[in-house]
Amino acid sequence: MGKKLHVTTTINGEQVEFLCEARQSLLEVLRDVLGLTGAKEGCNNGNCGACTVLFDGLPVDSCLVLGVEAEGATIQTVEGIACDGRLHPLQQCFLEGAALQCGVCTPGFLVAAKALLDKHPHATEEQIRFELSGNLCRCTGYDKIVRAVMEAAKEMTHA
């Protein structure tokens, strides 16, 4: 086993310290060291987006970030999307619109869609489809996902 490195970071608003080997990805650290299993390992090579988290506010594939790179960063995972026990409008719309089947891609879609709507509250369907192209779903055919994001956008801008 390699030497363990000490990392201090902020995850979902809380300061977190952990030990990891240099070779461990942020995804491995989140899941195996910190027990945050929301982010999923799909392809583990940056194609599928199932491991998407926000890194300093930007969506990244956590399988393509080393755990040690999280030093001093601010990370948000799908676990931090619901607020005070209430689902985020995106989560609610995914549920109500049945925008998932097996569910493995869902956390990544939720995080990427949240980043998109935070940046473009009035995103068009085309924008949603383009910006979510880094998230793959092998069940739904995408249409219900896109419609759920559009529905959430509507609710969030009317709220």
Binding site: G46, V60, L64, L132, G134, N135
Partner: peptide
Amino acid sequence: IGGWQIQSR
């Protein structure tokens, strides 16, 4: 180049 997640890094 890739999607948004890739372009962030």
